[in-house]
């Protein structure tokens, strides 16, 4: 397959993830949207690493994809912890209902 096919899949995933972030009113769905966007980024990195010319060894993009996976895990862990505290404090999961920094 050509590089462009992977890029089209990636931009579709990115658009759906962004849509999930801005259109859903649920904090977990916002996190799911971020996961989709990071997945699109990883797909882009791996596709460009695969299709680099023979001069480079094509390993840089894959290493960066590993780092992006690490970022995704850290973000999910901290995000779930913050959501747990927000739900405990505000008794809701709507992002628009969360309008105070403290009690």
């Amino acid at each position: 397959m050509a590089l462009q096919a992977y890029l089209c899949v990636s931009v579709a995933l990115f658009a759906i993830g962004l849509c999930c972030m801005i259109a859903r009113r649920n904090l977990i769905h916002v996190l799911i949207g971020i996961e989709l966007i990071l997945n699109a980024a990883i797909l882009n990195l791996v596709a460009f690493a695969r299709f680099t010319p023979d001069g480079g060894d094509g390993i840089d993009g894959r290493v960066f994809a590993v780092f992006v996976i690490v970022i995704a895990v850290a973000e999910a862990a901290v995000g779930i912890a913050i959501i747990q505290q927000v739900v405990r404090t505000f008794r809701t999961q709507k992002p628009s209902a969360i309008d105070r920094l403290r009690e």
């Binding site: 799911i32 996961e35 791996v46 695969r50 894959r62 590993v66 996976i69 999910a76 862990a77 779930i80």
Partner: peptide, 22 residues
């Protein structure tokens, strides 16, 4: 895309860890 290590990481970390967290 010939990246078997990344596929493994995606299954282990993405599907195993992040999804369990969500």
């Amino acid at each position: 895309l010939d990246s078997d290590f990344l596929a493994l990481m995606q299954v282990l970390v993405g599907a195993g860890g992040v999804l369990a967290l969500l």
